[in-house]
Design a protein around this nucleic acid. Sequence first.
DNA 1: GTCTATAGGTGGATAGAC
DNA 2: GTCTATCCACCTATAGAC
Lengths: 191, 191
Amino acid sequence: MDTRERLIESARELLWEFGYVGTSPKAIQQRSGAGQGSMYHHFRGKPDLALAAITRSADELRDRAEAEFSGPGTPVQRVTTYLRRERDALRGCPVGRLTQDRDVMADPALRRPVEETFAWLRTRLAGVLAEAVAEGELDATLDPAATATALVAVLQGGYVLARAAGDAEVYAQAVDGALGLLAGHVRSTAT
Amino acid sequence: MDTRERLIESARELLWEFGYVGTSPKAIQQRSGAGQGSMYHHFRGKPDLALAAITRSADELRDRAEAEFSGPGTPVQRVTTYLRRERDALRGCPVGRLTQDRDVMADPALRRPVEETFAWLRTRLAGVLAEAVAEGELDATLDPAATATALVAVLQGGYVLARAAGDAEVYAQAVDGALGLLAGHVRSTAT
DNA sequence: GTCTATAGGTGGATAGAC
DNA sequence: GTCTATCCACCTATAGAC
């Protein structure tokens, strides 16, 4: 892994843990093993490096979700697989946490991947839910778009509650609650 | 409103908007109209003032929720009132956003009101849901504790999604989705 | 109680040797 | 491409006059 790559990966980890404001160029350089000032050769500055890091995290999130949404099983099974995927609850979401970072949201370039990621996620999940409704697996009273937004919100909010409690189990409980609510709308358990 | 009070209110607003790391003593002093250095007479430092501000925000959140939970109507109606309460979605939750602030979560004193607020909220909401189950308003397949955690998560995550989209309507959609999911478990609409 | 002055540390970035 | 040295602005806090 070359220096440029190490800088991006270090930035990703630090942004995840400390946020944009809490991450200094010096900290990124030290973690990456690059010398002081070296990152300015590969990137124009902190925002430029952050953009590379954020874009990569957003792409990863999207790829993993897409693999689950387009995987095997009925629509509800795929949604369940997505919701139940093991996540580092206390660490939170590397993309979602950026919404609380003013410097990120104030910069159109940095904000864009965050906005696009969740727009895609909600739309894509709504599509899977619409499939479920069309196939009769979910009852037709459910609005796919609103339900999708609520389910994604459960994950993002689950992180918040887990961090507040200092207990990853709270995240799992939020997911359990969401699946319990969804279960009341499942009509058939076709395999 | 005396100087001490203005300092607390200014800190509350700035913490809400910029978070702990993004809020400087200087900014608090300027917003409050107090002169540079004046806050050190009333508070030992930034953490001490932040504790006063966070505690007040936490108390407010709790009082408003309690008023709705113990208000008129059936349990499900009260939960609906709580979920549908008008909120400044793009501003987010003044307490929940602190969970993403490392300096807050790393300090036991600052962390405590955050932890206690959400522990109380989840427990209190679970109690109202348990009432609903006991009275037959909600079907008995729902786990009150897990459902409560999921519903609170929808609100917290709704803020995240609304900020990501730059659109308060997304928050409302998340709440709509949660109420739609809950509706499938309501047995009677007793008044 | 409130103000000005000030200090040590860090953040983000640049210059220029190698 | 990488390193050291350096810069200015800001953050947090203290000292001490009024």
